[in-house]
């Protein structure tokens, strides 16, 4: 049984420019202990999806238009605030891109670390502090007993992200949502943090939803990948499959445009044009205006996600019709 199942989530923003369909009919499953990656460019709706699940969307201008997010029998989107509060921070935790903005600069780290314990577990302050020291040691902070009482600005960027992770994991959550946790960090520090999340996940058996724009991080970290574009999931599969047998032209093109896989001297593959304006209605496939393979039907016909192979889904009409086969070869590396 899945730990978390999101069904047909739709989150819209009502802005001056019109209704922005930030997340449009997104569904996914998260098994216990699994690592799931959501990859997409800015504005693809990957963060909004997770914020919606945790009720962190500012309303207005945001509005959750439909869908369910079932966690342990409770619909997170429909349940009352009190119930959601008990789950959030205790059974589902989140780490953000910028640790400085998500830590309160006026409170000592110790206060912020023990807060979830005092709120959710009702243990004594003494005990909570002991647990906080342990949790800092577990994320590799030396001299934790002393550093526990530092203010956030007294830590470096990498250390702050470690504190964030310690904070997110202190109540031993079943789900950890990591929203670009290493984007703001240097590569050598990113490597440390990824390693740390992996290790803590193994120790605690936490399921992780990893939101990133970096396919490299996905390859290194996730077992299952959802590719998002313009507020929709366009492809999902096991990580190996996503890279070995892309079934959606967007996923294929995204991989081709990464310099790491390119030979020098050849121009980089580029996806022409820009992502669509989500405040305008998009009949058909949202990627069709930029797609090399697009046909008239792609621009007109509504697309749905369909399973093509074992746990491999694509929203490409032409792939579903069997008109496209090896996207990797067609695009050419």
């Amino acid at each position: 049984m899945p730990l978390l199942s999101v069904e047909n989530l739709r989150t819209y923003f009502y802005t001056r420019a019109g209704v922005v369909r930030a997340v449009d009919d997104v569904s996914f499953l998260l098994e216990p202990g699994e690592t799931l990656g959501i990859v997409g460019e800015s504005g693809s709706g990957k963060s909004v999806t997770c914020y919606s699940i945790l009720g962190l969307i500012p309303q207005p201008p945001g509005r959750i238009m439909g869908g369910r997010a079932i966690f342990d029998g409770v619909d997170l989107l429909g349940c009352d605030k009190e119930r959601l509060r008990l789950i959030r921070g205790k059974r589902i935790s989140m780490i953000f891109q910028d640790p400085m903005t998500s830590l309160n600069p006026y409170l000592r780290v110790s206060e912020q670390l023990i807060e979830p314990l005092l709120v959710h577990e009702k243990i004594s302050r003494r005990k909570a502090l002991d647990q906080a020291v342990t949790s800092l040691e577990e994320v590799g902070i030396q001299d934790a007993g002393r550093r526990l009482h530092f203010y956030p600005h007294e830590f470096s960027g990498g250390m702050r992200q470690r504190v964030m992770i310690a904070m997110a994991l202190i109540s031993r959550p079943e789900v950890l949502i990591a929203d670009e946790p290493t984007t703001a960090l240097d590569v050598t520090v990113q490597a440390q943090i990824l390693e740390l999340i992996k290790r803590r996940q193994r120790d605690l058996g936490t399921a992780v939803i990893f939101i990133t724009h970096d396919l490299g991080v996905i390859a290194a970290f996730c077992r299952e990948v959802y590719v998002m574009y313009a507020g929709r999931i366009v492809e999902s599969a096991a990580t190996g499959e996503i890279f070995a047998r892309p079934m959606h032209p967007y996923n294929a093109a995204l991989q081709q445009s990464i310099p790491a896989l390119h030979q020098k001297g050849k121009p980089l593959f580029t996806i022409p044009g820009l992502p669509p304006d989500l405040s305008k209605p998009l009949p058909g496939c949202p990627f069709s205006p930029r797609c090399t393979y697009a046909e008239p039907k792609c621009r007109e016909q509504a697309v749905t996600l369909q399973t093509m192979a074992e746990r491999h889904q694509t929203a490409c009409l032409r792939y579903q019709a069997g008109e496209l086969n090896d996207l990797r070869a067609a695009v050419g590396v």
Binding site: P267, T270, P272, G273, V331, G332
Partner: peptide, 14 residues
């Protein structure tokens, strides 16, 4: 190899 040339991305709304 189907290399796509850089196209004019066009302005946002127009």
């Amino acid at each position: 190899m189907s290399q796509t040339a850089i196209s004019f991305p066009g302005a946002r709304d127009t």
